[in-house]
Structure formats: structure tokens, C-alpha cells
Nucleic acid binder design. Sequence first.
DNA 1: CCATGATCATTG
DNA 2: CAATGATCATGG
Length: 222
Amino acid sequence: MSTPPRRYDDEASLLARAHRFAGWSIAELAREIAHPLPKDPTRSKGAIGHLVERALGADRGSLPGPDFASGIELKTLPVDARGKPAESTFVTVLSDKDLELPWASSHARAKLLHVLFVPVESRTVRGFAERRFGRAFVWRPTEEDELVLADDWAHLTERVLVHGEVRASEGVALQIRPKGKNAEDTTRRADDDGAPTRQLKRAFYLRASFTESILARSGLAR
DNA sequence: CCATGATCATTG
DNA sequence: CAATGATCATGG
């Protein structure tokens, strides 16, 4: 058995690689690395994420954990014509285990400690292949970010524990929304009386308003 | 089934 | 027109 090659991709190296294609279009980057683009982008929602993963050398596939051995998580960030995030950012699927852990030891926090954001024009700006990349930047949560996230985490997980349900409107930076193939994509769970039941698969997302503040700060920093 | 990558499309 | 709730694709 051979061990898959593991490069140690540090922050500076990843930033340099990502900055190379700032200003490029999806089609240009895809051609550069000979990466096929989907014929129907609407049915290939993760296509840009996969393209950037390959361009930066992420090779962990769909294994759990950060994209790079260095612990850095890669996220594309769709931005509208005004430069503001057009969508929320997926963090991690909600599991029963999450409900027993504080923010500090959560899987979500582990993924958000060191993030490389790669901005890309959203579909509201121009056609799929012509959408251009922005300048990548790194985010590490500040102490204040962590306070907000920890507070949301405590609130949201308690809502799920006590009520079983939680609205997407709850949470300042984090929110819980569906995440699955469709409405039939459920997960096993114990109800209030401890009886087994099924529950729509859900996940944590970062609100666009939160990534907007992150984006604004990164702009001021350079 | 688990996880990864997200955006779509309807609603308010 | 932003936000919520729903959905799509791929790999192990």
C-alpha cells in the first residue's frame, strides 16, 4: 500500500497560488489546469469549489476535516456586483454529537479556525464560465468573532435539543438550515420521549451578513 | 449512509 | 431583492 502524497500547504503558499488567478474567469482557470466544466452549472452547484480545490492542490477528496494537511479550510465565496456575499457559506452538517459539545470543542470551530476564502462573481453578475475570481484572503476568527459564534452555537444547539427544531432566522453569524438531497433526506434521531424518529438533514451555515463583515475587514487589512 | 462541494427557487 | 427552505452532484 502506498501513502498518498501529502504536501504541507502553508498559508503563504496557498495565497500565492490563489492570487495567480485573481481576475481570471472560470473558463480561463479551467483551461489552465485542464479541468472539465459542467454542461449544466445549475445541476453542478459544487463545480467552482471543485475547480479551485484542484487548482490549489487540495487532494483530500470528501474525507472529513480541513482541505489541507496544514489545517486550512478552502471556501469559495460568491459575491454580487456590489462585492457582497450572495449566499451563505456551508460549514458542517448538524449531528447529534454536536448537541453535546460546546462551541470550543466543536467540529464546526475546527473547520473555521483557518479559512482561505476565494471570492468569485455570483451568477447575478454574468454567465457561468465568464464569472471571475477575486483576490483570495485568509480569515481567522477574532476574539469577538468567536464570542458571537460561541453564543450562536449555544443558542442553536439548545433550540434543537429542547424543541427539536430551529428557524433559519435564529443566530447572528451562524444559522441552521436544511442540507440534503431533498425533503426525503432524513437522519435518525430520538424525539422528546426518546422514541426513534426521522428528522430532515440540516447543517450549519455562516450568514452572508457575517462573511460580509469578514470580507470588509480583509479589504481594510490590505 | 457518510462526507465533500455548494447554489437554486420560492416566498415574504 | 434578501432570506429561508429545498435541492443538486460526486466520492468513499
